[in-house]
């Protein structure tokens, strides 16, 4: 055989084996020597299956036969032939097989193409994607926490003033568009200062939590319950058909759980409620709050527990 082409094949950065029709090794390039540790001088003229026994499978034999008889070019991928092609543990190799003729004798060309770098890169990318997925998941969770902190009252869990304003503006625009009534209740805990002074701030906090739960329980899903500040709560009731809030007020005042037990003491909770309506008492949220607040003071000034007053 001509020496020059073989010297060129020695310089190629892929594994090259040339076999004759009897599958004896005619050439084994330097790259093959590197990846297998098997040297050409030791194996020339030996059958390929003696040197690379993993190749000796039924389908490989069939393939080799096709390449010799029909001149087909065949391809074995590293992913599907981990045992067949990967002659060295550290390499992932694709195998291309073709045939050519020299001096009327057929020779087979086996090209082992190293795709280990692709595997490394793809695995790195997979790790990176996994990492990004984790970071994204954590960020989303943090975002949720931040959103909760910004929009919900930390003590009672109901909406805070910021969320109340955001949602109430939407409901107000909707009521304006559809000519509907909107009801706003201003609720204040009676004698809250006395509860704090008598039983301590922890008892006061428990009262606020109880009131928030109670108001949430008696309202509809679309109503908004918010803590306005201190012992003051707001309820916004959209889609009202009439100016009659008796049923909800009755549910608040007559609730059997309107009390807490604190260190063996039963503390009854009394509430004063002021009510205003859009459009009668104002056409913006601030005015409606002001009207309901004013009505609440009138209710509070009345004698006895649990009073309610409608803004004029």
């Amino acid at each position: 055989m001509n020496k020059i082409p073989y010297e060129i094949l020695n310089e190629i950065s892929e594994g090259i084996i040339v076999l004759n029709e009897k599958l004896e090794i005619c050439f084994w390039n330097s790259y093959m020597e590197n990846i297998t540790g098997i040297y050409k001088k030791d194996i020339t003229h030996q059958n390929i299956y003696n040197i690379l026994p993993n190749l000796n499978t039924n389908y490989f034999n069939k393939t080799i036969n096709d390449v010799i008889t029909d001149g087909h070019k065949m391809f074995f991928s590293a992913a599907m032939h981990k045992d067949l092609v990967n002659i060295s543990k550290n390499y992932n190799l694709n195998l291309k097989i073709s045939s050519f003729e020299v001096n009327q004798s057929k020779l087979l060309l086996l090209e082992f193409i190293d795709v280990t770098n692709q595997y490394i890169q793809i695995n790195r990318l997979k790790d990176y994607v996994q990492e990004l997925y984790q970071v994204n998941k954590e960020l989303k969770e943090k975002e949720k926490v931040i959103r909760n902190l910004a929009y919900y009252d930390q003590l009672t869990g109901v909406a805070n003033r910021a969320l109340f304003y955001e949602l109430s503006e939407k409901f107000l625009s909707n009521a304006k568009r559809s000519n509907c009534l909107l009801c706003l209740m201003f609720i204040d805990v009676d004698k809250f200062k006395k509860i704090n002074d008598t039983y301590g701030h922890e008892a006061g906090d428990n009262v606020l939590i109880k009131v928030a739960n109670l108001l949430t329980e008696v309202t509809r899903d679309e109503d908004i319950v918010a803590r306005y500040g201190g012992d003051e709560f707001l309820i916004l009731l959209p889609y009202m058909k009439s100016k009659n809030c008796e049923s909800i007020i009755s549910r608040i005042f007559n609730n059997k759980n309107k009390k807490i037990n604190y260190n063996g003491n039963e503390i009854n909770i009394s509430l004063s409620i002021g009510i205003s309506f859009y459009p009668n008492d104002g056409d913006n949220i601030d005015t409606l709050i002001k009207s309901a607040d004013h009505a609440m003071y009138i209710a509070k000034s009345r004698q006895g527990e649990d009073n309610c007053f409608y803004s004029a």
Binding site: H72, F76, Q118, I122
Partner: peptide, 22 residues
């Protein structure tokens, strides 16, 4: 699809198309 996936399809395509074109 990664290059590895493409290599798998290349092998399958090679076998099927060889049979048809052959």
């Amino acid at each position: 699809f990664t290059d590895i996936d493409f290599d798998i399809i290349k092998e399958i395509g090679n076998i099927i198309l060889n049979s048809i074109v052959g």
